[in-house]
């Protein structure tokens, strides 16, 4: 297989806090190939956003510098100088954020915000950048693009703003687009449109996409591969299809069980996984999911399970994976 475009190894992120060190990301590794779409799925607070911010080098100031490596184009992004990293940001790797209502600057016009990356990275002059911005807005489905450039964010709906964010992100034709819960803050009908748009643009531009979400339903239609994250680590990775068909980690199986289904009859209620994610004040020394897990064995409470390949390309971090016969039938047929 060809060389991966992006290769993350043992990425670790910790935060300073008043109550001590928070271990937000605890050594995750993954590869991303050119043009590939990768999903990262997990409950809120498991470290998805922190992972993406660490890759771009824009962690909040409370964070310690990230450990591990993020190889891209033969260089480790975590060790680049600030100035070199700024050349990568927005140009080679661009990002879309969760909340379009707050992610745009309220006092600058859409045009100004769209053209600033073009001028920064592609060194376009004002007029060229403006024309390019018009065509970008066109491409993300905003009509009257010329007039819209003079508008301010508050004059746009949430869905439109997310389209603007997408236009901004793809403006310099990045090789990798990271979309962090791009549809979470939007109405259901708008969600589908935005996902369609992302899918289309990614394939037109042959960008690699990292789609971050807490909603398995979102990755199902979009991603080639999916990594399931729990408490700062990956618990299961594999082709999206096999993950949905044969989820082997109890957490993945549980998530699939709790995917809301439109055809659910009265009996088949949403089954949430009992318990909540705890903030990790120490690096885990056992399976982080064990306290919530009905499959947990003694070993789970003594050691951190490593990711093991249990089928070609399908990895699970579990000492007692869910037997295939136990799998919830509904989820499987649904995913297919």
């Amino acid at each position: 297989m060809s060389e991966p475009l992006l290769s993350v190894t043992d990425l670790e992120v910790r935060f300073k806090s008043r109550r001590g060190t928070i271990h937000a990301v605890n050594g995750i590794s993954f590869d991303l190939r050119a043009g590939e779409t990768l999903g990262i799925v997990g409950e809120s607070g498991c470290g998805k956003s922190v992972t993406s911010l660490a890759m771009l080098g824009i962690l909040p100031r409370q964070a310690y510098p990230a450990d591990g490596s993020v190889m891209f184009g033969g260089r480790d992004l975590l060790r680049l100088k600030d100035q070199e990293m700024r050349e990568v940001r927005g140009k080679d790797i661009a990002m879309i954020f969760q909340d379009p209502m707050t992610s745009l600057n309220p006092i600058l016009t859409i045009g100004r915000q769209l053209t600033e990356s073009l001028r920064r990275h592609l060194k376009m002059d004002k007029e060229t950048a403006r024309e390019e911005a018009v065509s970008l807005l066109d491409r993300v489905g905003i009509s009257d693009a010329g007039d819209r450039l003079r508008s301010y964010p508050h004059q746009f709906s949430g869905g439109m703003r997310q389209r603007v964010m997408i236009a901004m992100a793809i403006s310099c034709r990045p090789k990798i687009l990271i979309a962090d819960e791009p549809t979470t803050a939007l109405d259901v009908t708008i969600q589908a449109q935005i996902l369609e748009l992302l899918k289309r643009l990614v394939s037109e531009e042959q960008m690699a996409l990292i789609l971050i979400t807490h909603d398995l339903g979102v990755v199902a239609g979009v991603c080639d591969r999916t990594n399931v994250m729990y408490a700062g680590g990956f618990v299961e990775t594999g082709a999206t299809e096999s993950l949905f068909a044969t989820p082997r980690h109890p957490y993945t199986a549980g998530l699939l069980d709790s995917v809301p289904r439109l055809d659910a009859s009265g009996k088949q209620r949403l089954v949430p996984i009992p318990g909540t994610v705890k903030t990790l004040m120490e690096k885990p020394t056992s399976c982080a999911f064990a306290p919530r897990c009905m499959y947990a064995v003694d070993e789970s409470r003594r050691e951190v399970p490593p990711l093991r390949e249990i089928a070609p390309g399908h990895h699970v971090a579990c000492f007692n994976p869910v037997p295939e016969s136990d799998l919830p039938q509904g989820a499987i047929t649904e995913a297919r």
């Binding site: 600030d82 990293m85 940001r89 927005g90 954020f97 909340d99 992610s103 901004m168």
Partner: peptide, 15 residues
């Protein structure tokens, strides 16, 4: 969030 967006664009800190 919009400051994070600006940083994600690779703008210079002074900008």
């Amino acid at each position: 969030d919009y400051v994070r967006t600006a940083r994600a664009k690779g703008l210079d800190p002074s900008v």
